[in-house]
Design a protein around this nucleic acid. Structure first.
Length: 279
DNA sequence: AACGCATACAACCGCGAACGT
DNA sequence: CACGTTCGCGGTTGTATGCGT
């Protein structure tokens, strides 16, 4: 079977997205929801392939995205998750609300990789690069910045309140690098996880934090949650996002759709009010 | 001020998985 | 079961920006 090229049509635009294109895509998604991506460009009046639209939406336009550099704790979480999951960026991203796989991947390649290397840690295996034959804690490759040892890089541990549930798929996928902090003891990731409330929490809550919340239009749901996702943070992000949209000139969006979205999503707070407040 | 290099991030590409017929 | 289509993922590239000389 021949693979169908993604962008087989002539005249399909590539390269950076313009504000106008963003506007069209946002408008379309907000009014119609995420449906067949292949059809999106046609229906939205874009000269892009569906793949490009999906990427633009998920990596940049999605209103629930955080912007800016990863925080220290997020970075540490990424490191820990990478030690367990390897380069499965989507899985890692699923556990960092508001962050995309692309963003995390980029951050890993540009920041964390370097940081770990500097510290004398192999970013792939998460083992010390020059495996010390002695028990010394310092390696010759570590520079003079007095970086913390791997154990110290572990993220702060939140209180765990939920009781254990069935393990998720990652639990059984052992093909990825299993070495982790304190790996020299031969502790498996599972063992490690048991000792790590944060990781337990993350693994047990395998449900993506965000995906469900943008499957609108949806039927109104009670309260301030959608599919058990707390919408408060989402609303806040939406409001921030709408603020960003000021760059496009609010009126051009046809903001009626935003109010509709607010209703559809069962939000108690009118996002536009939040925008007004922020302004 | 101008140039070259380094860095960060957006976007593209190709592959495989999942799903429908 | 085979085939076709669509989607999502991970690797890679392109480009804008920052910084040092």
């Amino acid at each position: 079977m021949g693979r169908q090229p993604c962008c087989d049509k002539l005249g399909v635009k590539k390269g950076p997205w313009t504000a106008e294109e963003d506007k069209k895509l946002i408008n379309f998604i907000l009014t119609n929801g995420q449906c067949c991506w292949r059809a999106v460009p046609k229906l939205a009046g874009l000269l892009r392939c569906g793949k490009s639209c999906r990427l633009r939406w998920t990596n940049y336009l999605r209103p629930d995205l955080k912007r800016g550099l990863l925080t220290e704790s997020e970075e540490q979480l990424v490191i820990d998750l990478h030690a367990r999951l390897g380069n499965r960026w989507s899985k890692i991203a699923a556990r960092l609300p508001g962050r995309t796989d692309n963003e995390i991947k980029n951050h890993w390649n540009t920041h964390i990789k370097k940081k770990l290397t500097k510290m004398g840690i192999d970013p792939v295996t998460h083992e010390p690069i020059n495996k010390p034959s002695t028990t010394t804690n310092t390696t010759s490759t570590v520079d003079d910045h007095h970086q913390p040892e791997p154990e110290q890089l572990r993220p702060p541990l939140p209180q765990k309140t939920e009781e254990s549930q069935a393990t998720s798929e990652e639990n059984s996928s052992s093909s990825q690098p299993e070495t982790c902090w304190g790996a020299e003891s031969g502790s498996s990731s599972d063992n490690n996880r048991e000792d790590d409330p944060l990781m337990n929490f993350l693994w047990e809550n395998d449900t993506p934090f965000l995906d469900a919340s943008w499957d609108f239009p949806v039927t109104p749901s009670a309260g301030n949650t959608i599919n058990n996702v707390d919408m408060s943070a989402c609303e806040e992000n939406c409001a921030n996002w709408l603020l960003d949209c000021q760059d496009f000139s609010v009126e051009e969006f046809g903001f009626g759709c935003f109010n509709d979205v607010g209703v559809d999503m069962g939000m108690n707070i009118n996002m536009m009010d939040m925008v007004d407040e922020k302004l």
